[in-house]
Amino acid sequence: MLIIRFILTLIASLMLTACNATPDPVTLNTVKTGTPALWKVSGTKPEQKGVAYMFGTIHILPDDVQWRTPVLEAAIAESDTLVIEVLGLDDTRNAAKIFSRLAISPGQEKLDTRIKPSLKEDLDRIIDSANIPERALNRMETWAAALSLASAQTKSLGLNSSGGVEKKLTAQFEKTGKPIESLETIELQLGYFDKLPEAQQRQMLTTVVEDSSDAQQAFEELFNAWMTGNIDDIVTLSDGGILSDPKTREYLLVARNLNWAEQLDKRLQKPGISLVAVGAAHLVGPDAVQETLVKRGYKIEKIQ
């Protein structure tokens, strides 16, 4: 489930926003003050004129935490552009339309037939607690049902998408009139999961169901690793689940990271300073975006 939370919570946030039910508050065992990882990227060749600060984010946050630091605030102040994963999630009506168009297909099997029999009771329990009509889930493709149930579990922890790092950074850049750009569209990001083979989609659903009883602990581990800038822990947490399958990892993580590195390379060949704020899982380990930029001649400094 951890990797689902790292990579999918950005899109899950649009469904969290649309959910009207407000659960009772949950006491989370999370670090209150931290130093999330931040890198500086600069060129070593004449044509590499730009600079980028790369900030690994987590898309949904508890309310009572201090993740901003003087080093990060200085990078924000110096940057003239914010680059995030996806734009347009604030338009929840349009985002929900895109989700529905990709997620709902005729002729879907009942959801409980897409999972092994030993997990059916757990699936029923999750559906009941999620407050999502089973008939709605039965109409969804498997990836979308898995995502809906995962986001409902996050909602049950009392987390609100309005407190996410990207939303706060976006509001800050909008206030100062600085441009905000994205690396992917909503359609493109959802499309990665929509195009997964059914076997991989069912593995996503299985992971959500199997890990449902540990949802709070899973989020706490993920959040604390991010908050403390613990790269090793983030790598460990990112290696399991659906990304343990090499083909799925290549498709959902590696290929996207390479695409982002290509976009950033083009950006860095022009003057300017960008703050690139993307999910932390994309910036750690051997497949990190920075690793590709190093191969293209850029200097990478971890400054926090």
Rank of each mutant, 00 (worst) to 15 (best):
L2E: 10
F6Q: 09
I7F: 06
I7T: 10
T9M: 09
L10T: 15
I11Y: 05
A12T: 13
S13P: 05
S13G: 13
S13V: 08
M15Q: 06
T17V: 09
C19P: 00
T33N: 01
P36D: 08
A37T: 15
A37K: 08
A37L: 14
W39P: 01
K40R: 11
V41T: 04
K45D: 05
E47H: 03
G50H: 01
Y53L: 00
I60Y: 08
D63N: 14
Q66I: 15
R68Y: 07
V71S: 02
V71E: 11
A74S: 14
A74N: 11
I76Q: 14
I76V: 15
A77E: 15
A77T: 15
D80W: 00
L82E: 05
L82W: 04
L82M: 08
E85T: 01
V86H: 03
L87Q: 06
L87W: 01
G88F: 10
D90L: 10
D91R: 08
N94I: 15
A95P: 15
A96S: 14
K97I: 14
K97C: 12
G107W: 11
Q108H: 04
E109V: 09
I115W: 03
I115N: 01
L119T: 09
D122K: 09
R125P: 00
S129D: 12
A130M: 02
A130Y: 00
N131Y: 06
N131T: 12
I132W: 02
R135H: 12
M140P: 07
E141A: 07
E141P: 03
W143L: 05
A145E: 14
A145T: 15
A146I: 15
S148V: 13
G158M: 02
G158A: 01
L159H: 04
L159M: 06
N160Y: 09
S161G: 14
S162I: 14
V165I: 15
F173Y: 12
K175N: 02
K175Q: 11
I180S: 06
E181K: 12
E181H: 09
S182D: 11
L183M: 11
L183Q: 06
I186M: 08
I186S: 02
I186F: 01
G191P: 12
D194P: 04
K195C: 07
L196M: 11
P197E: 04
E198G: 05
E198H: 04
Q200V: 07
Q201C: 12
L205E: 12
T207F: 01
T207R: 00
E210P: 10
A215F: 13
Q217E: 13
E221H: 07
M227T: 04
M227I: 08
T228S: 10
I231M: 05
D233L: 09
S238V: 06
S238E: 01
D245C: 03
K247R: 02
T248W: 01
R249Y: 06
L252P: 11
A255D: 14
R256Y: 09
R256L: 07
N257T: 13
L258T: 15
W260C: 05
Q263W: 00
L264D: 08
L264V: 15
R267Y: 11
L268H: 05
Q269R: 13
K270P: 14
P271G: 10
S274V: 10
L275E: 07
V278D: 02
G279E: 07
A280M: 07
A281Q: 04
H282A: 03
H282Q: 04
L283D: 05
V284P: 05
P286N: 00
T292Q: 12
L293G: 03
L293W: 06
V294A: 02
R296L: 10
R296V: 07
Y298G: 08
E301W: 00
E301T: 14
